[in-house]
């Protein structure tokens, strides 16, 4: 990716992180006031962490970038799994995680797509879209090495950053939506 693209992607990731963190804080504040379980708040915190790591992966280099890159998928998978864990679909995730051969990218894709099936409104489309971009990541990284794979990876990362930023901003907006 060129440095301009990296900066834009990183900024979008940070915007998404801020939106998810804001939603997580609002949920945590409500949980403190009226009780209940903070599962949803944890889920959005994990998604915020994933976006921070994605931003770090885009602008840093070397091992840090690689670690952050892998952790983006694992934190996203954890966040989507927690959102899924609040419903009956959670039982589909364990066998799915065991069956996936290509690591966290594919797991993030699967959890996002499974989770999105229980969502509605823009959340359904955007989370499914984020899941698809993780699939693109797997294809670009593992199945299509070389320049084609790199271009595909760059497109996938840009789309994922945009999707996550849109999702976070849409739901963090003061009117709720």
């Amino acid at each position: 990716m060129s440095s301009t693209v990296e900066i834009v992607v990183s900024a979008l990731d940070l915007l998404g992180a801020a939106g998810f963190a804001y939603i997580a804080l609002r949920l945590a504040s409500l949980t403190l006031r009226i009780g209940g379980e903070p599962k949803a708040s944890w889920a959005f915190s994990l998604l915020a962490a994933a976006q921070i790591l994605a931003s770090l992966a885009a602008i840093s280099g070397g091992r840090l970038s690689y670690t952050a890159y892998v952790a983006t998928a694992s934190f996203s998978a954890a966040g989507f799994a927690m959102l899924t864990a609040c419903r009956e679909r959670q039982y589909a995730l364990i066998p799915l995680a065991l069956a996936l051969p290509l690591g966290f990218d594919l797991l993030a894709a699967a959890t996002a797509i499974v989770a999105s099936m229980g969502f509605r409104g823009p959340a359904r489309t955007l989370v499914a879209g984020i899941g698809v971009t993780f699939l693109v990541r797997t294809v670009g990284l593992v199945l299509l090495p070389g320049p084609t794979g790199e271009v595909l990876l760059a497109i996938g990362e840009s789309l994922r950053s945009m999707g996550a930023a849109m999702l976070a901003v849409l739901y963090a907006a003061p009117q709720g939506r």
């Binding site: 949980t31 009226i34 609040c86 509605r120 823009p122 709720g176």
Partner: peptide
């Protein structure tokens, strides 16, 4: 709570 309920319903969750 009304605002949060809107968000959570879209994510298929109970109110909290």
């Amino acid at each position: 709570l009304r605002r949060i309920k809107k968000i959570l319903l879209d994510f298929g969750l109970d109110i909290l």
